[in-house]
Amino acid sequence: METLNDEGQWIVMMGFLVAIGMFMLAIVVSQAPLVGQTTAESVMEFPKNEIQDLRGKLVSMGSTLPEISLETPDSDQETLQNRFREDMALLSMSRNNAIANYSVDPLYNGKYWYDSGTYGDVFYKYHQIDIHYNNGVTEYSESLLLPQWDPEG
């Protein structure tokens, strides 16, 4: 150390400080594509469009489908509903790796909502539709109240 040239050590140290500063900035910049990746990935991972699709189908068809009734059974409606439910369940499972199901008007005190008129006002009877979706990452459950569609008004 004795023979070492001691001149210009301040300049060397400032050089080091600037280098360290640039290194830190480079780390910050290198995180930017990583943020982009995780955002895009999580957007793709979240099954927004699938859930909206199922939900939209039920809202557009649902108000005509229910009418499941113990007092005035309509076997056509029940057949149709079971058909749609099983189509949805099997195709979701086989193509989208997701469990999808729905039910209309749960039983309450031995009666369907429709018969007991639980949800009703002076204008409509309402149907309760429960939607379930689970693809292992995202779980979604929703209860919808749909007014009974009446073609005669």
Binding site: G36, Q37, E41, V43
Partner: peptide, 18 residues
Amino acid sequence: GLVYTPGDAHISDMQIQQ
């Protein structure tokens, strides 16, 4: 422990999907 893949690919995938 962090496996790095280029972010660009996922961004355009996401856009095509939407």
